[in-house]
C-alpha cells in the first residue's frame, strides 16, 4: 500500500471581541500589570460574551477553516473538538459543532488532553487519514475557560483566555504534512492542574460550589517545573523521530502558556527566539486553542510558506504533552 501523508488543508481561528487587560484585572484582584508581565508575559486576554459558549467560538473558527480549505461541511467525515470547557458534559461539543456546520456525514467526539488537546487531536486525525479511514477531518481546539475561572484567585485568573482555532486535515503531497508525532502523559501529576468537582468523584453540590471546586485549580510552581522540563524534551523527540536537527526547524510553535516557559524551552532546545512564535502577550493561555490560533497568526504574518518545517509543542493538564513535526503543505 502506498503511504499517505496527512496535513492541514485549511485553518481558521476566532477570538471573542472583549479584551481584558492587566489594568482591568488590577481593579478586580490584588495584582498589577508589572507583576503579570514579568512572570507570564501576558498583557491581555479575550473573554467570550455571556451568550457565547465553546461551540459558538468553535463554529466561527471552523467556518473559516472550511472556507480556507475550500471544503463544504457535508464533506467532513469526522469532527474532533479538543476542549476542557465543553458546552455540556454531553452531548459533546463536537456533536454540537457537527450540527452547526452541517457535517451530516461526520462522526464527532470531544478529546480531553488539556492544553495538549489540539496536538493530540491532530495526531488522531493523522492516523485516520493515513489509514484510509477518512478523507477530511475537522480538528478544533476551543475553550471558554473564563467560565471555570475563579475571578478572585489572582494566581490563576490572570493566566487564561478564551478562543478557538480549527484545522481541516486531509491528504497532502508526499513528503509534506505531519512527519512525526510525540505524545505522552504522566497521570501522577494530575492533581497539579484540575477542575476537582463536577464529575463522578465529586458531583456538583452546594458544598462543591461553596468550596470553589468547579474552578480551575493549579499548583503553579509544579506545573511550571513540569512544563519547563517537558516542552523541550517533547519537541526534541518529535524532531528526532522526523530525522530533523535544530538548524532545520524554521518555526517552533509552542503552547502559549507563559513566556518564561517558552524562553526556557527554546534555550534548552538551542533554538533562537526569532524562530519561536509568541502571541501569549495578547491572548494569555487559551489551552487547547492556543496552538491552532498561533498557527493561524504565524501564517498571517507570512511565516508559513509551503515547505517550511514547523514544530508544534504542547503540554497541559493530565499531565500530558504532545509535539508534531510538520512540513507546511499549503
Amino acid at each position: 500500500m502506498e503511504k499517505i501523508f496527512a496535513g492541514i488543508l485549511g485553518m481558521g481561528h476566532y477570538l471573542p471581541d472583549k479584551v481584558l487587560t492587566n489594568y482591568d484585572l488590577e481593579k478586580m484582584v490584588d495584582t498589577n500589570n508589572d507583576w503579570i508581565v514579568e512572570r507570564t508575559g501576558i498583557k491581555s486576554r479575550h473573554i467570550a460574551a455571556p451568550e457565547q459558549a465553546t461551540s459558538d467560538l468553535a463554529f466561527i473558527a471552523a467556518e473559516r477553516a472550511l472556507k480556507d480549505a475550500g471544503i463544504d461541511g457535508k464533506d467532513i467525515e469526522c469532527v474532533i473538538v479538543a476542549t476542557e470547557s465543553p458546552d455540556t458534559k454531553f452531548p459533546s461539543t463536537a456533536c454540537l459543532l457537527q450540527d452547526k456546520i452541517g457535517a451530516k456525514n461526520a462522526a464527532a467526539f470531544d478529546l480531553s488532553a488539556g492544553c495538549s488537546g489540539f496536538v493530540y487531536a491532530l495526531a488522531v486525525a493523522n492516523t485516520m487519514i493515513v489509514s484510509g479511514l477518512y478523507k477530511h477531518i475537522l480538528v478544533v481546539g476551543a475553550e471558554t475557560l473564563s467560565r471555570i475561572m475563579n475571578w478572585q484567585d489572582r494566581n490563576t485568573c490572570v493566566l487564561f483566555g478564551d478562543g478557538a482555532g480549527a484545522a481541516v486535515v486531509g491528504q497532502v503531497e508526499d513528503g509534506y504534512g505531519i512527519l512525526s508525532i510525540d505524545m505522552g502523559a504522566d497521570g501522577s501529576g494530575g492533581q497539579f492542574l484540575s477542575q476537582p468537582a463536577g464529575g463522578s468523584r465529586k458531583p456538583a453540590s452546594h458544598e462543591t460550589v461553596d468550596a470553589g471546586e468547579h474552578f480551575i485549580h493549579m499548583d503553579g510552581s509544579e506545573v511550571f517545573k513540569f512544563a519547563v522540563k517537558i516542552m523541550g524534551r517533547t519537541a526534541e523527540n518529535a524532531m528526532k523521530k522526523a530525522g530533523l536537527n535544530t538548524e532545520e526547524i524554521d518555526l517552533l510553535i509552542p503552547h502559549q502558556a507563559n513566556i518564561r516557559i517558552i524562553n526556557s524551552a527554546a534555550k534548552r532546545l538551542g533554538i533562537s527566539m526569532d524562530k519561536v512564535f509568541v502571541n501569549v502577550d495578547k491572548y494569555g493561555n487559551t489551552s487547547a486553542a492556543s496552538i491552532p490560533i498561533a498557527i493561524c497568526e504565524a501564517r498571517e504574518q507570512g511565516l508559513l510558506e509551503k515547505g517550511k518545517t514547523v514544530i508544534l509543542a504542547g503540554f497541559g493538564a493530565g499531565l500530558t504533552w504532545a509535539s508534531i513535526a510538520l512540513k507546511w503543505s499549503k
Binding site: 514579568e38 512572570r39 510552581s221 511550571f224 517545573k225 519547563v228 522540563k229 526556557s264
Partner: peptide, 10 residues
C-alpha cells in the same frame, strides 16, 4: 523571582 528559583533548582 519564584520562577527563576524553580529554574535554578532544576
Amino acid at each position: 523571582d519564584s520562577l527563576d528559583i524553580v529554574e535554578l533548582i532544576m
